[in-house]
Amino acid sequence: MTEVAFFVGAIGAIGGAIAVVAMRNPFYSVLALVVHLVFLAGIFLLLRAQFIAAAQIVVYAGAVMVIYVFVAAYVGGIEEPMFDSSPMLRIVGPILAVALFVEISIAVLGSSLTALGTDGSDKIQGGFGTPEAIGKLMLEDFLIAFEAASLLLLVAAVAAIILAGRKKAQKEAA
């Protein structure tokens, strides 16, 4: 059963990812990424990360992607030519990427770490990955990281307002 779920999720996620890269219109790329993220959330569930999966759907596929959709709609569907001005990059890039994938796969599959060959279920306790457990960790052991992350978000929000602010852009255009 797990195997079936994994392969369904994996195929969906890979398909979504390829579509993100291959779609010419950025708008469709965004939608493809949403698909990818939803399938990936399913895989997260298999890994007993319920809270992360939920957060992925709500925050990522929900909120963050909405921004993408807006921006993609705002800047318009610019269809770029599929053929690059520098064909070398189009050839060398994917070759190197495939090489990377092959190397990592060899490293993972050929690793002498026996734990990699298990599904890890013997180590997992009852409340693994529940919002309760994660929340406890976040607010006890990782409070500083949590606060720092919230501060970072604030800074990023301010930065975005300044970057895309209307006033300055108009002033420079005028």
């Binding site: 890039g93 090489a99 990377l100 190397e103 060899i106």
Partner: peptide
């Protein structure tokens, strides 16, 4: 000569480095 775009050129170089490093370890 290999590349036209600066930014992506750097990305390729980086990938090249990572691939090389991994190969060395393997």
């Amino acid at each position: 000569d290999l590349q036209s775009g600066m930014l992506r050129g750097y990305a390729v170089l980086m990938l090249f480095g990572v691939v090389g490093l991994l190969l060395y370890f393997l």
